[in-house]
């Protein structure tokens, strides 16, 4: 019985881990490119979830169906954030850089509260629901779907970065901006693209989470914090490593919650974060 519960938790931890990994990959990509932490990453996720929610509430479009559009919208939001805000503060003082995205986060959260209210909303009757049982273990289909789709998106991102010319140019820009420019790479365009792709990651993740998670203006905060931990764990800027790091965070979260106390589950995740920052500040896997 206990073994079953343990196994059940491990599975659900791994499943959530893939979603965390996708969220963190977007954050890590942007950081790797220009050493800026997007403090509005969680709010971008919240917007994606609301996008999925309103698509369902107003037009009965399932989040899985609206996912491509939501992802595209988030891509555009990322590009606009770069062109409208980030580009102007790049050379500026560190504090200005922090407050710019932090300010954007607060603005987006307040705007969502103002427009949508603070209610917790849940999509009823999504396409995928219910659960399957596997030898006595129950796995929620929404979680399974979200996890599989997040993993697929992650694989797509990895393929793009490693196997396409543009992906290579993006990595080159992250590793040496000046040398990249001398190769004929338009680094300014790479920055905009990086913000677009980094934000598109939460477009996908938000659409998937909306299938089974409550949607509310503050929903991004928890996910963003977990994403920061994941990025730190994987190594800032190391996109592939966020996959394993995401799974570790997912596992620590559920197992910590189960073995110690549910109320402590985030505390334990942050304990992990502190350990990493103190013992291996470059992350478990170093630089990509």
């Amino acid at each position: 019985m206990t073994a079953e519960i343990l196994l059940q938790s491990v599975i659900s931890g791994i499943l959530m881990g893939f979603v965390y990994a996708l969220i963190a990959a977007g954050l890590s990509l942007i950081f790797g490119l220009m050493e800026i932490v997007n403090f509005a990453h969680g709010e971008f996720l919240m917007l994606a979830m609301f996008g999925a929610f309103w698509g369902w509430a107003l037009w009965s479009v399932d989040p899985l169906l609206s996912l491509p559009l939501t992802t595209l919208a988030l891509f555009v939001l990322g590009v606009l954030t770069y062109k409208g805000i980030i580009r102007w503060i790049l050379g500026g003082p560190m504090l200005a850089q922090i407050f710019a995205t932090f300010g954007l986060a607060i603005f987006l959260r307040s705007a969502a509260q103002f427009l949508f209210g603070v209610d917790f909303r849940l999509i009823q009757n999504p396409w995928v629901q219910g659960r399957i049982s596997l030898g006595g273990l129950f796995i929620g289909l929404p979680q399974l779907t979200a996890s599989a789709a997040a993993l697929a998106a992650f694989a797509g991102l990895y393929w793009f970065l490693r196997r396409t010319e543009t992906g290579l140019a993006l990595q080159a820009t992250a590793q040496d901006r000046q040398a990249a420019a001398l190769m004929g790479i338009n680094t300014e365009r790479m920055f905009a693209l990086g913000w677009g792709i980094g934000s598109a990651c939460v477009g996908v993740a938000g659409s998937l989470l909306a299938i089974f998670f409550y949607v509310f203006p503050d929903v991004g905060a928890t996910f963003a914090l977990l994403a920061y931990v994941t990025v730190a764990l994987g190594g800032f800027g190391n996109v592939p490593a966020t996959l394993l790091a995401g799974v570790i965070v997912g596992l620590v979260e559920v197992l910590g919650g189960m073995l110690i106390a549910p109320a402590f589950k985030y505390a334990i995740v942050f304990l992990l974060y502190l350990l990493v920052v103190l013992i291996r500040p470059q992350g478990l896997f170093g630089k990509f």
């Binding site: 010319e165 290579l168 990595q171 080159a172 990249a180 190769m183 004929g184 790479i185």
Partner: peptide, 21 residues
Amino acid sequence: RLFPYLTVRENLLLGAHHPEA
């Protein structure tokens, strides 16, 4: 100033990234 975490081949290919090359 090579791209340290890319392979030698990737570094070389990027040398010919611009449309003329």
